[in-house]
Design a protein around this nucleic acid. Structure first.
Lengths: 208, 208
DNA sequence: CAATGGTCAAACCGATCGGTTCGATCTCGG
DNA sequence: CCGAGATCGAACCGATCGGTTTGACCATTG
């Protein structure tokens, strides 16, 4: 299993100078991500955030310049990680598009059951922060989801792959929202069964 | 058409004393709702909020005591209004459960197209505010949605009405999220067609 | 005509926010 | 071993926040 929200051990940033600034930046990003996810982007101040991830404010501002810039970088990394995670789940499911679709919702279902699950970080961010850049990252994230799902729909021979892809995206996001804000139990399973029903219907309607 | 987010004309609160405090409270609620929805719960301060709705801070605090209390009251009213709106759309659709389901997603689709549409107010609130009361209101809101949808599924003679109800809830919330954060065009339509496919499948699986 | 009490605008309060600055410390390259 | 530079912790800054208080209206009640 590939976990999208793995706990990160804070590798203490070396005090000296030359130790790869890019690595320091990455370390900060990985440490800040779960804290911002848990507390909400505006739910934690820069001071407390720095204390939690074990760096000084000056270091944070040296590497990111702004809290917003840090947030955007965190979201970018998160989006990349989630997409890699889902893509590998699909790849591990073999050739059958139906199996690939099942794999997506099974993976989501496992995510929903994690104790730290608090919904989709990108959607939460877009709902909180009205900064345009954040909304753009979220929109792009959903676009990447759509690509992956439309690909499955297409390989499955759906009558209208773009329609089915959009419908599958609606299922994915809906399941995540319901799991986060109503009840996580079964959400992944229910969405998976719905997805397979839609896939089947989109195929048979082609055969007729 | 019943609009869930109708613009409210601010009836200036009477200066004198005895003019029905309950009515004043309701007036404030109706004026505050669209502003909080547009700007986000934490995206506008109490001072600016009061200026926008045309009352003084003291009046607001006299009637609600706390910004959080105002927010919770606004969300309660909003949830009631949305549910009445959907219930009346269902009632206007006649007896056929499939028609009722279509009516739900048609109504949602019209909502998505409104220029002020910014996603589900309850979901946005829960994503922003980590106050337990707000999350509870959101959860209850989704529960009411689920009741309505399960009712339709049940009347349609679905093999497993509770499963279908949950799947329809996922479609409703997913469509709203996609419309808000990716692209509003067609979201209601795609979700409606998916819902009808699921409904049909849940029925035929019973007949077999 | 008081008296009551809801209203307003504005000043005010302490807390917290994002962000900056400073002096001291440490690591590394030369 | 020395200078450059990254880091820390803490002090500091102006702005804004949620919430309170004040003093002057004004509309209704008795």
């Amino acid at each position: 299993m590939i976990e999208p929200i793995g706990t990160i051990w804070v590798m203490p940033v070396a005090k000296g100078s030359t130790i790869d600034p890019e690595r320091t930046r990455a370390t900060i990003l990985e440490a800040a991500a779960p804290v911002l996810y848990e507390r909400g982007l505006d739910g934690i101040g820069v001071a407390e955030l720095c204390a939690r991830i074990g760096i000084s404010k000056e270091t944070l501002y040296r590497h990111f310049g702004t809290k917003d810039a840090l947030v955007e970088a965190v979201l970018e990394v998160r989006s990349d990680r989630v997409m890699r995670w889902l893509a590998s789940a699909v790849a591990a499911a073999g050739e059958d598009p139906a199996d690939q679709l099942s794999a997506v919702f099974d993976a989501l279902g496992q995510w929903y059951d994690e104790p730290v699950f608090r919904g989709c970080a990108m959607l939460n961010a877009a709902a909180q922060h009205h900064v345009e850049a954040v909304r753009a990252i979220t929109a792009r994230h959903l676009g990447r989801y759509l690509e992956l799902l439309t690909g499955i729909a297409s390989r499955a021979g759906a009558a209208d792959p773009h329609l089915l892809g959009r419908q599958l995206l609606i299922l994915v996001e809906g399941a995540t929202v319901v799991a986060a804000h109503h009840s996580a139990v079964g959400a992944g399973d229910h969405a998976r069964r719905a997805a397979l029903t839609l896939l089947s219907a989109a195929r048979t309607s082609l055969e007729c």
